[in-house]
Amino acid sequence: MSNAHSHAAHTTGEHNPHLAHHFDTMGQQAGAAKLGMWLFLATELLMFSGLFLAYFVIRGFYPDMVLGAHEYLSKTAGGINTCVLLFSSYTMAMAVRSAQVGRPNNQEDAARIKKYLILTLLCAGIFLVVKYFEYSAKFEHGMLPGKFYTAHLHGYDIEGLPHIFFGVYFFMTGLHGFHVVIGMAIMVWIYLRASRGEFSEQNYAAVENAGLYWHLVDLIWIFLFPLLYLVK
């Protein structure tokens, strides 16, 4: 979002066409965009931190219930998704790198950026598909959040108050999944701009910021995975 201005540039003489009117240099513009993105990531981290805190509090209140309920999450599905997201982070970093070394108006270099973006999108898609299967299994077993929890009527007897655990599980992974979807939309947008040949070593702040966002999605999953799926 914070990089949105960069293609609204006024073309002024010998200046870089991607330079917006209120900036003096591309360096200033790119630095501002990146600082803006980092501040945005800070807000994302703080927002998720509330959910992580809720998780730790619930764990503190009902340790046995959390340990009992988390056994019903599929470690394998979570593990696959972790690897998929890590790999997508790598491809995204490579997309950014391709932009950093890309020559202006060079088809070949633009194609490389696009290749890595496609790979990243593909990983995001796989992540969501795996998530879909996980979610539908939970739905089937009535392991739903809060007052929709019916697993005990489906024959799964989990000690304590597991509807809280599944509430936290669905909220955390749901919000994370929502970020994945937003990330995919951003990547499609970046892909379209890359197709127009906008990105090169002279202008890659938008790719870089999209990358930062995507790595954040990965970062949150790195903590979600052990806490929800693995920890005993």
């Binding site: 982070s89 790598y90 995204m92 970093a93 990358g211 930062l212 790595h215 990965d218 970062l219 790195i222 903590f223 995975f225 052990p226």
Partner: peptide
Amino acid sequence: ATIKASLVVGYFM
């Protein structure tokens, strides 16, 4: 997880 996160933040980001 923290080590993994540091790697992502330090190198990928």
